[in-house]
Design a protein around this nucleic acid. Structure first.
Lengths: 184, 184, 184, 184
DNA sequence: CATGAATGAGTTTTCATTCAT
DNA sequence: AATGAATGAAAACTCATTCAT
């Protein structure tokens, strides 16, 4: 890849992330993205087959980057220690990219079939990581509860109430304490 | 003539629910709704100011009907008994209107600011009912966990995995047992 | 005509005049007129074949009423005295129905072929009256000048500048003095 | 390729002028204009925000071009000579663009508030030029009469009666003679 | 690669008019 | 006569995508 090729696509991706985060999938126009990126309308279609394609690529990339960050965040032998770390790293990540996450976690489900699949594949990977960290099956009630707790924290306390990270950690800790009980 | 054939607004609402459930907010066209209802394009605009307005009215109605069904479902003096009943009634309702709920619970967040507000106001009413049934504050970790559990069950086991109602109840029960522990 | 028939049509006419005067031909909706009149949409079509027809009837009526008022305003043997009276009565009439006149004098030309014809037939009747009052042909420069003076006064000093009637009369007098010169 | 084939905006403007002249503001559809221009519907909206916007731009341009032609038509030191020249040049211009002028002089008043303002600003510029050419104030009866004479000639003898230019000049001369009297 | 003008199918919305009651 | 719900043909405007330069 030539340097300039790289830069142009990166510029577009950066802008796409920004605009999608602001407006959501359905309301962002390709023209918004290219204006933000400072490139011509046609340039967009050199790098992406369509608006949908661009969104899809962004989603995949973000999901992979999240999963990787999670996997690299805990090498502790103590398994249930890892669960806590995973949850905190995940929340921290979401917190950092609040607007983006809103789109990538809550909009995917309504952006078409392809996106629904992508979304649930991500959810499954996440649950598997949680499950393995406590040596349980993916459908174990403990895993279900942790997954629900995370979703609730993100939707309600990060996106809606916009609490500070410390307050959010407290809510997480109290939740995990109840779920894990003696296991901790 | 049956009731549904008689009343034009009802015919449109029925069709709108059906089409929104199938296609989601962004992909349904007013022309889809009126075709389904067997009325003229202009007729839609006699009863609704716009597609958005129609969606909003449907959402409000559905939310109110859900809340009312919940409130009428438990007169038991035993509070924590009510929690279980509420959860089951709620899940049963969602289960019954699976496709619709998908749109109304997961699409609202990405259909514009008005809808986000409506969604969270519904969420709050729901959490308040849950909280009161166990005599706790809305931000008590127990309430947070129950809310997350319900969300997880709906999103994963009803919408995605499409499990049978009994299996879903089992998951709910196991979850509640862990959350409530000795309180049961 | 029965009493109630009369009343309904009159109510509609009154409202039509009001709404046309406010919004002009193209921007008034039949629904505006009937709302103003307090009758049903369909009632309009009992009395008028179409919106255009209604406008046409109003125009004709108004024109006739103007012409009649003019003709009855001067029985003086002194011809050039009549010219002055005619001009003042005409201006007074226009002044009284300012908004309406704007529509009926300046909008007709752009509301379709039928209306253009009606407008010019009115103009001709008016010029004939002016011409006869000074014993001249319709194309005599004096008549041309008087007609132009009236149009200018209406358009500029009544509609645009919104002057008081006395000021307008002064302008008229000065204009007529120049046009008629020794004839006065 | 000729100039007019080359430039898309010019093609649209040319077509817009033609269609507006034929049908007037309210009856021309954007689809008429683009059909005439041989471009796609969307292309229109690259160059104009709306039909109204297009009409406004055309009006402004035409007005400016008229005013400029007038201002460049007389350098004579003899002021009242200039008045005659101005009137003839103006009438000649109108005569040349008969259909267009009908729309632009008589329709503007009924095409919305913006257009009314534009129309009267043009009228004022015109009257100022006339007034200055005879060293008088804009509200001097002489100016009022000249302005009315022009309006009458255009409306009645050009647009309605469709006389030849020479006949029209005769009417103008006779009118001016009466108005200016000894000043000539 | 990059451009950006051009495309045109697609969608919402309006409103004069009809007609069964 | 009166109603007003229903109609459906228009019309304006949008925007993802293409393609000649």
């Amino acid at each position: 890849m030539s340097q300039s090729e790289c830069n142009t696509k990166d510029k577009i991706i950066e802008s796409a992330i920004k605009v999608f985060a602001e407006k959501g999938f359905w309301k962002t126009k390709v023209s918004d993205i290219v204006k933000e990126a400072g490139v011509a309308q046609g340039t967009f279609y050199i790098y992406f087959k369509s608006k949908e394609d661009c969104f899809y690529e962004l989603l995949s990339t973000l999901h992979n980057s999240m999963i990787n960050r999670l996997l690299n965040s805990c090498n502790d032998g103590n398994l249930s220690k890892c669960l806590e770390v995973y949850c905190k790293v995940f929340i921290e990540y979401i917190y950092e990219y609040k607007m983006l996450s809103k789109v990538f976690l809550f909009e995917a489900l309504s952006s078409g079939e392809r996106f629904k699949e992508l979304y649930f594949s991500f959810r499954n990977r996440l649950k598997k990581i949680i499950a393995e960290s406590v040596n349980l099956e993916i459908d174990d009630p403990i895993v279900v509860l942790v997954s629900g707790l995370l979703k609730e924290i993100i939707e309600y306390y990060i996106i809606y109430k916009n609490l500070k990270l410390e307050e959010i950690y407290d809510i997480l800790d109290e939740g995990l304490k109840i779920i894990l009980g003696d296991r901790l």
